[in-house]
Design a protein around this nucleic acid. Sequence first.
DNA 1: TTGAAAGTGTACAGATCAGTTCATTTTGGA
DNA 2: TCCAAAATGAACTGATCTGTACACTTTCAA
Lengths: 186, 186
Amino acid sequence: MRPSKRDELVRKALNIFYREGFHATGMDLLSGETGISKTTMFKHFHSKDELILAVLRLRDQDFRTWLFRRMAEAGEPRAQLLAMFDALAEWFAKPDFRSCMFIKAASEYPDPDHPIHVQSAEHKRMLFRQLQAIASEAGAKDPAGLARALLLLKEGAIVTAHLGHEADPAGDAKAIAEKLISAALD
Amino acid sequence: MRPSKRDELVRKALNIFYREGFHATGMDLLSGETGISKTTMFKHFHSKDELILAVLRLRDQDFRTWLFRRMAEAGEPRAQLLAMFDALAEWFAKPDFRSCMFIKAASEYPDPDHPIHVQSAEHKRMLFRQLQAIASEAGAKDPAGLARALLLLKEGAIVTAHLGHEADPAGDAKAIAEKLISAALD
DNA sequence: TTGAAAGTGTACAGATCAGTTCATTTTGGA
DNA sequence: TCCAAAATGAACTGATCTGTACACTTTCAA
């Protein structure tokens, strides 16, 4: 089995779903835009939902790899935590930024038991675990509490960057994070 | 003109869109669930998008009226600001809570120039203005900055309540808000 | 009571949706 | 070179989508 076509499909579908939305993107359009025949698409994935789940798995990998690599470059655990918001600022500045794929997925599949909704929630949990580990390394008194607070700031910044009129939501979030981190580590 | 049918339609459509999503809710289903004929629906609104815009206008009114009334009951401006998070906690606890309608609308209509997206952003701006006024009354050194920070916490709490596994996102947000308000008023 | 406005039910148009079928062509490794 | 796996294109199913047409009924106020 050669996985290249399948991977190519998932990666291209990711960009289109992210830009246009899930329901608004039909399989015919997807086939046309990717240049991959519908027959092949349905050979790799038995349904549109399965394709979306594969897209979300890829996005989860890509996003967490990107974010925590950026954070790791900052050095000390305490600096890593703050660096999350610098990474967010870069993301928001991209012209094709359109919010968080998992917030959007959960919005389009509101049933909490739907696999797409469940998998979106799982992404957030993975973020929490990794962030908690760094907060722990940094010597936080309550690593879980600090991780929850920083993630709350992250989600707020994303929504505000997408829907708000603010100049620098990532900067606002970072300023708050600095206070929280100082208080959590002293 | 008797507006009762029209209002009834908008109010019932609001609940269905909120529960099921916009694209996932067809006009036939809407007609069936509301008991209002499709002919009448399209006499009042020339398209589904127009109905959605009316739904969002109603939701904007309802939500801001509810939120700022709850806050006003808290008395002093400083207490009002904190009361926002108590109101959020009540909202999150409702069994039919499914995130913020405007975050969902912007997710389903990702084109920033789409009227539905524009109107969703406008809701957030209205929230900002009202919150800024209260921050100003409270004597904040930078009312706009405090309003931005509190709204960022609000959006983060909503997303976390919808998608996260946290026990009390509104409480987490409130704890952070307390620190910010104290620092902004001293 | 009457008459216009508002609402109904049904059937329909035309497009699009997810997903299938099948005969043909392309591909890449042995 | 050969062969099986992979991919293709195009037509097709049946359902659903937004929106329309039209004849009929209900409502309400003058």
